[in-house]
Amino acid sequence: MEQHHNHTESTFLVGIFDDEDVLMSGVKKIRNSGVKIHEVYTPFPIHGLDEALGYKRSFMSRAAFLFGLTGFTCLVALMVWTMGSDWPMNVGGKNYVSVPVLVPVAFEGTVLFASLGMVATFLTVCNLYPGKKPFLFDNRTTDDKFAMAIDVSKNKLSADEITSIVKNYGAIEVSTKLVQPGDLD
């Protein structure tokens, strides 16, 4: 058992930062020095950090658009079908289906589908669900510290070299953490 773990576990370096601006400029410089960063964990969203880490734009807005379009189509179809074909009602000889009447419900349906669909996508993509046990590189990342995790095996530089680069660009401490397979799923 012990033997098996040693073969598959990987060594991560965890650099702790305590200031968002230092972290921001640090990330850029550390990446420029040739270090591959696994991920940065922060207690609050830092604008621009995703770009500094080279992440592509989030596709959540596109997901919302598609879900919204689905909701719009479904509700308009439901209304047109029920009022126009399944059970048409004659109200003073007016049209069975008139466009202004469709607006409120079609709008609400668009918003409902877009919101719920996007949030479901978000929870799925980020793998968030009730009762999930998170793997934290450092417990303080949900409080007041920022942790930069670096997978040593995926870097060409040695652990010592990476440590000195990360410290040089503002980390207040750098520690080592062993990660078991499955921890980061």
Partner: peptide, 14 residues
């Protein structure tokens, strides 16, 4: 929900 504060998650969250 097992939130860990990863930048990727924050990006989607934002």
């Amino acid at each position: 929900f097992g939130w860990d504060g990863a930048t990727k998650s924050w990006q989607h969250y934002e």
